[in-house]
């Protein structure tokens, strides 16, 4: 038995050694929400999948079970000289800064945080611009003149979603009331759909008929509450229209998939460069989602207004307000 085990161990070690051939293999590290959260992390996964389909190569990924594993995961792959380490989420900012300065010859791409190091590429999004558009949708659609916002963890980054949402509502009309709640102040707020669902029920009971949730996996609770009460939710990050067809008005797309895909492709082609890149409406980094699940909810008239606003934002005629410090954290 033991001999057999030893052989298996040896085979596994040798096998692992063989698979470490020179093939380009990037690494993707999710944040606490986990891989298949139908939202932020899943968008990152989709981007990496796309990359591996196009190139026929593979990638490694890891779901940390806690924030303390961020640094362990980063160090582990950095020590093994990974070709590129993509870390998604503002929670990685300190960990990436620490590990990237310790391993200056390893490339890092971090999403949602800005790390000023020569081997780190930082990608952030103008979530306020995308939220502006879904705010307009909410204001055009509401019948009760009250809409809701549910944020995940109460940090400047999520306040930026709310800021854009509020401005988008006001762009359409001034008499719509906005109710806001945040699930919590710690990272566990991303992973608490039950609490988010209770908050959504509370907002619906107070008269809201549309709720935009920027809360990662917790947002699934908001969508569930909308479905249960026959109201509407607006999804976030990934296209969540399919989660409850007919009850998701639209989704504020944050194209983490594009960012991950671009970083991996560039690293493979040798065009990867450190520095800070912002992806807004103009760059196709954020958008609102229309598909077969919600096409009956978004009228052509609404679409025309949205496209008009999009053009104005891209041209700079409308400047959507931002929140100070929303991408800092180190």
């Amino acid at each position: 038995m033991f001999k057999k085990l030893a052989l298996t161990v040896a085979a596994a070690v040798l096998g692992a050694g063989a698979s470490f051939a020179a093939d380009f293999e990037p690494v993707l590290l999710y944040d606490i929400g986990g891989k298949f959260d139908k939202s932020f992390n899943e968008a990152a996964y989709v981007g990496a999948e796309q990359f591996s389909k196009e190139t026929g190569g593979s990638f490694k990924d890891f779901e940390p079970s806690s924030e303390t594993q961020y640094e362990q995961a980063l160090k582990r792959f950095a020590r093994r000289k990974a070709d590129l380490i993509v870390a998604v989420g503002v929670g990685y900012s300190v960990a990436v800064r620490n590990v990237a300065s310790q391993y200056p010859d390893v490339k890092f791409t971090v999403i949602d945080a800005i790390i000023d190091l020569p081997n780190v590429q930082s990608i952030t999004f103008k979530e306020n611009e995308g939220s502006f558009l879904v705010g307009m949708i909410a204001a055009m659609k509401t019948e009760s003149n009250t809409v809701g916002f549910i944020g995940g963890m109460d940090i400047p980054l999520i306040r930026r979603f709310e800021q854009g949402y509020q401005e988008g509502i006001n762009y359409i009309r001034d008499d719509v009331k906005l109710i806001e709640n945040y699930v919590g102040t710690t990272p566990s707020a991303w992973n608490d759909p039950i609490k988010a669902s209770e908050m959504a029920r509370g907002q619906f009971a107070r008269g809201a008929d549309i709720i935009f949730s920027a809360a990662g996996p917790s947002g699934l609770g908001v969508i569930q509450a909308a479905k249960d009460t026959g109201k509407l939710a607006i999804g976030v990050d990934s296209n969540q229209n399919h989660v409850a067809p007919g009850f998701v008005l639209s989704s504020m797309l944050k194209r983490v998939d594009l960012a991950v895909h671009a970083a991996m492709t560039e690293a493979k082609d040798g065009t990867w460069a450190p520095g800070h890149r912002v992806m807004g409406l103009a760059e196709g980094g954020v958008d609102y989602a229309v598909d077969e699940h919600n096409k009956d909810l978004i009228t052509d008239e609404m679409k025309a207004k949205l496209e008009e606003a999009r053009a104005k934002i891209v041209s700079g005629e409308i400047v959507v307000g931002d929140v100070a410090g929303s991408n800092s954290g180190h």
Binding site: V90, S93, V94, T185, S326
Partner: peptide
Amino acid sequence: VGPLQRPGGQMPE
């Protein structure tokens, strides 16, 4: 998230 938070940080650390 209050008195001990890292200056400019967003996470509870």
